[in-house]
Design a protein around this nucleic acid. Structure first.
Lengths: 129, 129
DNA sequence: TATAGGGGTTCCAGCCACTGGAAGCTCAAG
DNA sequence: CTTGAGCTTCCAGTGGCTGGAACCCCTATA
């Protein structure tokens, strides 16, 4: 497979795949003309990475997860711990965004939004406390 | 006020304030020794920026909000539109994170997390569909 | 056979919003 | 006079790509 093929099958842009190679997440072979050659194993890895990234894992987490995946003697506790940590981070992020949403939606509701300059949103941002 | 004072009062790190000057969000004067001198007006601006950033507005949005704040003839509709757009972005982000959370918490629950290698989390990441 | 196009390659720069660190200057206290 | 805190500038790095330039390779068509 060329990079375009594997990109389509893995659902990732070619640029991203080149980047993943650069940081050592995949190691495709090369053909005599310099093109990358992707095997099924590489495609499998890329799909794994795509799914892990879609769940919000960082690149370094993805690297760890791949290592664990390929380590037959892993302990599932390690995987679970990593996932739980990430889940906690997601929960924190959601909580933070929900706080923003609460404040912001309140402000939006309180602003009439017409052609007059008076604006509770700006008033709130400007208030010191 | 020196940068340290204003940093403490605005609740922002000095580094951030220097950066805000660099991108033209504040324009403190200079003292003969080269130190920045911050007036109350600068402090006010920095607090405004800090609050807007805390609500998740981008730097460019903050710039626009400040411009609107200082424009006596603004229309509150402009402010409201900006805030609504940002609120929508927050809602989208929350929805995305909640989807991650749903999948991930399901996976975490299904993994026994002991010393054996068998792991539904890795199985899920590895499955092609 | 020339050429057009749609692949592929590398490398560099930029995104966002800071943050860390080095090297050096200024100022107040002891 | 020294010490140390605080200020200055400048450069580099963060994460995870993404855009673009300049160039090479391969196939199909006029």
């Amino acid at each position: 497979m060329n990079i375009g093929d594997v990109a389509e099958r893995a659902g990732l842009p070619p640029k991203t795949i080149r980047y993943y190679e650069e940081i050592g997440l995949v190691r495709p072979e090369r053909m005599p003309n310099g093109y990358r050659r992707f095997r099924d194993r590489d495609l499998h890895k890329l799909r794994f990475l795509g799914r892990a990234r879609a769940l919000g894992f960082s690149i370094e987490d993805c690297r760890t997860l791949m290592d664990l995946y390929e380590d037959e003697s892993r302990e599932s506790a390690q995987v679970k711990a990593l996932a739980e940590e990430h889940l906690q981070a997601i929960n924190d992020k959601i909580a933070q965004l929900e706080e923003m949403r609460a404040t912001l939606s309140h402000l939006v509701r309180s602003c009439h939004g017409d052609d007059r300059p008076d604006c509770p949103i700006l008033r709130d941002l400007a208030q010191s406390g």
